[in-house]
């Protein structure tokens, strides 16, 4: 169950939209903000709020990279693996972070603090290799800088 206030906020967002589907990403992000990830329960709640079927919410949820359908750590690090960043060394960056965090790409650290996710283009091609944490973009980052950025976010949590 989500708090009534959040439900009302999301319903207002849907009411403002020309078609409910257009508000789907905002609704999913709102629910993800509440649960930490988009749980099955959240998918059903989003479907109710949007007037879509759960399948239709699932279609959108699994399309968008920043909507998590599995549990994630408190900090989610997206490392761009698209072509510009790849040319600038994103593979090396990702490997370094895997070693630094002691997890494989796609996994979460044992203390549930950090999830490392390779992702497609962050729209930061001029500043590759790039990474993104929450709503903040970083780039170009060296492996050392990246480790420091992650450490900083870990402390904030």
């Amino acid at each position: 169950m989500i708090p009534t206030q959040l439900r009302q906020e999301l319903e207002e967002r849907v009411a403002q939209a020309i078609t409910p589907r257009e508000a789907a990403v905002d609704v999913m992000k709102g629910l993800q903000g509440h649960y930490g990830w988009l749980t099955d329960e959240a998918v059903a709640e989003a479907a109710l709020i949007l007037g879509l079927s759960t399948l239709q919410v699932e279609e959108l949820a699994t399309f968008y990279e920043m909507i998590y359908r599995r549990p994630v750590g408190r900090v989610v690090v997206h490392v761009c693996d698209s072509i510009s960043c790849w040319a600038m060394g994103s593979e090396t960056l990702l490997h370094h972070l895997e070693q630094h965090l002691g997890i494989a790409a796609g996994a979460t650290t044992a203390d549930n603090a950090v999830t490392l996710l390779p992702c497609c283009c962050l729209g930061n091609c001029g500043n590759g290799p790039a990474l993104m944490i929450g709503d903040r973009l970083f780039g170009p980052v060296s492996p050392e800088q990246a480790a420091a950025i992650i450490a900083g976010h870990r402390e904030d949590q």
Binding site: L55, E58, E59, T62, F63, C120
Partner: peptide, 10 residues
């Protein structure tokens, strides 16, 4: 229909 569709990407 609303119970069948395309999920995932790439």
């Amino acid at each position: 229909g609303t119970d069948f569709g395309a999920m995932g990407r790439a």
